[in-house]
Design a protein around this nucleic acid. Structure first.
Lengths: 233, 233
DNA sequence: GGTCCAAATTGATACACTATTGATCTACAT
DNA sequence: ATGTAGATCAATAGTGTATCAATTTGGACC
C-alpha cells in the first residue's frame, strides 16, 4: 500500500538540474543547451521544460536571456559583515558599534587555545555598544601571520570587514562557547559591571576560508544590557 | 487496514501518516499517491481520507494542490533528536540525558512570553546531565492545546521526540537568548550551584511547523560543568 | 569603429486533453 | 450530532503541440 506518488514532470526536471548544479556538473555562468534540443533530448515538451526552467529562475539558480539562452547562476551566498555578531538587546535587535580601546602585537599568552601559525598575535580590545548602550567588552587575538602591524586607525567599525579588505582574510565559520567569567580589570568605566564581578563570557574560535584557525576572542557582556542570541532552524 | 479502535477512522489515518512522516518514510516535498488510489488501497472512502488529509493540512504537514496532488510539507530537523540541544562539557561534547523532576498542567504564569493558544500549559521540570554530570536544570512550558494530560512516564528521553510521535508536533525552529539568572529554588541537590546563586540562563521560544509558538523554556546551567555552544557558518 | 541583417533563441500565447483535488450532495450508522 | 460511504461535477494543474513576437548575437560590409 504505497503512499508515494511521483512528482510532476516539471518538478522532477527542476530537481534533476538542481542536483547537477550541486554536484558541480553545471557551474556558474554555464549556458544550457537550447530549449528545443533539451526538451527533445529529455523526451518532453518545450512547455514542460520551460516550466522547470521558470522554477529554477524563481530559485535564483538560472538567468534566462531572450534571444541568447539560459545561464546558470549559482553564486555562493553573500554574507553580511554582521552575520557573526550574536549580541542583542534584551528586547531584541540593537545597532552594534565598536570603540577600539587598545591594539598591541604580543607573544601569545599560554592560556589561549592554539590558533594560527605565528608565536605572536595582535591583541585588540574593544568596547561594544548596542544602540549606544555599553553592552560588552571584548579581547580579540588575531594570529600574527596575517600582518606585521595594526594601528587603531586602521580598524574599521567591523573587524571582519577589515580582515577581508586589508588582509584577504575571510572568517568563514566560528564556534562560540558561552559560560561565566569575571569582568576583566581593563574594562572601561563606561561598562557598568565592575571589574571582577561575574559576567557571561563568550569564547570564540574562528576559522578562515582555507581551514586554518585565525582568531580567538573573549567577550564579556553585561546581562542587563545584552543577550547572546542563537536562532536555530 | 486500520485496526478497530476507539478513534475515528479519519484520525487513525491521520496519525498513521504522521507516523510515516516521523519515521522518515514520507519526506518533505514528496507527493502522495492520488486520493482515489490511496483510499482504495486502505479500503476506505475518499471522503474519509480527505478528512484525514484536511487534518494534516491544518497541522502544517501537508499542502494540497488542486489538480496536482498532495505534497508533504514537513521540514524535519537534522535526524538527530538532539539537534536542538546546545549544552556541552567545557572540553566539548558530552552525552546528554534527562531526568524528569515533575510534570503539571497549570495556568500560564504572567511572566512568560506569549506562546500557544491555550490559557494553560504543561510545566515540565528536568535535570539535564552531560555524561553523567549534572549540568543544568530546565523548566519547559508546553502549550496546553496539544494534549490534555502528560504523565512523567509518557515522556521519552527526548522531549522533542515525544512531541513528534505522540502529539504530531514538530518543533521547527527556536530562538535562544543567553543571559544571567539565579538558580531556582526547586533545583535538586544533585545540581551543584546552590539555589539563588548566579547562573547562566537560556530562555528559549520554540515554533511548530504550522508557525505557531508552541513552547517556552528556561534552562539554568552550571558554568563549571557546561557551556552553551553555537556553531556559526 | 559603426550599421545592418539573418539566424538563433527565449518570451508569450493559444488550444486540446488528461489527471487530480475542491466542493457538494445523498444515504446510512451510531 | 458526528462519522462513513459513495457519487457527481467544478476547478485547477500538468502536459503536449503549435505559432508568432521579441531579443540577442555573430558576421558581412562600409
Amino acid at each position: 500500500m504505497p503512499q508515494n506518488g511521483s512528482l510532476p514532470l516539471y518538478q522532477q526536471i527542476s530537481e534533476l538540474l538542481i542536483r547537477d548544479i550541486a554536484a558541480g556538473r553545471l557551474t556558474d555562468g554555464a549556458r544550457l543547451a537550447p530549449e528545443r534540443d533539451m526538451a527533445a533530448g529529455m523526451g518532453i515538451a518545450v512547455g514542460t521544460l520551460r516550466k522547470a526552467l521558470a522554477d529554477l529562475t524563481t530559485k535564483g539558480l538560472l538567468e534566462r536571456v531572450q534571444g541568447s539562452g539560459n545561464y546558470i547562476r549559482a553564486k555562493t551566498e553573500v554574507d553580511s559583515v554582521y552575520a557573526l555578531f550574536r549580541l542583542e538587546l534584551p528586547g531584541g535587535g540593537g545597532l552594534p558599534t565598536a570603540e577600539v580601546l587598545s591594539v598591541a602585537r604580543l607573544a601569545k599568552p599560554a592560556d589561549l587555545p592554539p590558533f594560527g601559525t605565528s608565536a605572536e598575535a595582535h591583541r585588540i580590545r574593544r568596547l561594544r555598544r548596542l544602540s549606544g548602550a555599553a553592552a560588552a567588552v571584548e579581547e580579540i587575538w588575531l594570529d600574527g601571520s596575517y600582518i606585521d602591524r595594526i594601528a587603531a586607525e586602521d580598524l574599521s567599525e567591523s573587524l571582519y570587514l577589515f580582515y577581508r579588505e586589508r588582509l584577504g582574510l575571510w572568517i568563514q565559520r566560528a564556534e562560540d562557547q558561552v559560560g561565566l567569567g569575571a569582568v576583566p580589570g581593563w574594562a572601561p568605566d563606561a561598562f557598568a559591571p565592575p571589574s571582577g564581578t561575574a559576567a557571561p563570557l563568550i569564547e570564540r574560535l574562528s576559522w578562515a576560508q582555507d581551514g586554518t584557525t585565525a582568531e580567538f576572542s573573549r567577550t564579556w557582556f553585561d546581562p542587563k544590557t545584552a543577550r547572546y542570541v542563537a536562532r536555530i532552524r
